[in-house]
Structures are given as C-alpha cells and as structure tokens.
Amino acid sequence: MIKELLLIFIGAMLVNNFVLSRFLGICPFLGVSKKVDVALGMGMATTFVMTISAIASWAIQFYILEPFGLSRFLQYVSFVLVIASLVQMIEMFIKKTSPNLHKSLGIFLPLITTNCAILGLALLAVNKGYNMIQSAVFGLGAGLGFTLAIVIMAGIREELEIADIPQGLRGAGITLLTAGILSIAFLGFSGLISM
C-alpha cells in the first residue's frame, strides 16, 4: 500500500514530470519563471489546487458521472467547471482565513484555472482508475514536480539575465532551449522505477 503510493508519488514528480516530460502547464512554466520567489509561489498555489481538484474530480467521477452514465459526454464540461469554481472558492476561503497566504498566493490563483496541468491531472487520475488516496498522492506529486521544474527554471533564468545572449535568441528562444536541456536531465529519472 505504502509502496504503491510512493511509486505514484515519485512517478508523478520525477519520472513523468508534468512539465518536462508530459508537457502540461507549459504556459506558467514559460510565463511565470523569471524570479525564484514568484515561481515558488506559483508552484505552491498549483500544488495546493492540484491536490484538492484531484480529490474533487474523483468524487464527481465516481459519485455523479459514472452512476448516471454521463462520463462520456459531460466529463470535460463538468471537470472544467468544478476546477474553475474550486479555484474561486479556495481563493475566497484563503482570503477570509489567512490574509498572509492570500497575499503570497492570491495573484496566481485566477491564472491556475486555465492551467492545463490541473485538468490534465484530473483526467489522468480518472483514466488510471486511482482511488481517493491515490488521486490525492498523485496530485501532490505532480504539483511538487511542477514546483521543482519551475523553480529550477527560474533559478537558471535569473542567471541568464546577465548573460550575453544573441539578439534573436532572447526571450522565448533561450527559455525553450534551457527547458530542453532540463528535460534531457529529467530523462535520467526514467530508469528510476519501471511502471
């Protein structure tokens, strides 16, 4: 049981890293990775929403969609709606209970709704037939993997600010090449576990 959960966790975080080998959440990865502290905030907010939305979408799938035979037609619509309203609710909850946390995570929460990593995670967890605990661990691992990737990227980009980069390569070009090299590094994890 524990071993299985650990495998899901490591698998989601390192072996099949959401950003660098599954290509989910590329937009924030390229857009919000200029400063390490901002990237860390974005990563934390995403991890939080991922874990909760994995549990919520599991509940929707097994208590509503499947018993009524709706999952073929309404799965995408309902998951997107659930995630969007969940993000809204989390934002209101944090604002009320912990203004400090809201200050650091607040600006990222609206952006997370259209982050494809969240919807991708919900659909992947359902496709793999995970139960509630497995879904939560999967979401946590994926979120931490996302945080790891975006923080490493931000660290490199802070150094790149002072590097002498050819004119045409500045901006998106060098960011993508850096991501490519990072992705090669993460390929090294592929032998870690055999799924």
Partner: peptide, 27 residues
C-alpha cells in the same frame, strides 16, 4: 523524445526572430 520538442521550437524561434524586424509579443 520530449527534450526534442523544446529544442526544435527554441531553434525555430531563434531563426524566425533573427530574420524578422517585428518584435515578438509575450503571451
């Protein structure tokens, strides 16, 4: 493999930006 996607698009953007006058808009 996954790294190839990043590298190919990065190099393509490099080529396109080097030959075009207009600056790229950030998404």
């Amino acid at each position: 493999l996954p790294p190839g996607a990043f590298l190919t698009l990065g190099i393509m953007l490099w080529i396109i930006n080097s030959f075009s006058k207009k600056k790229m808009e950030e998404s």
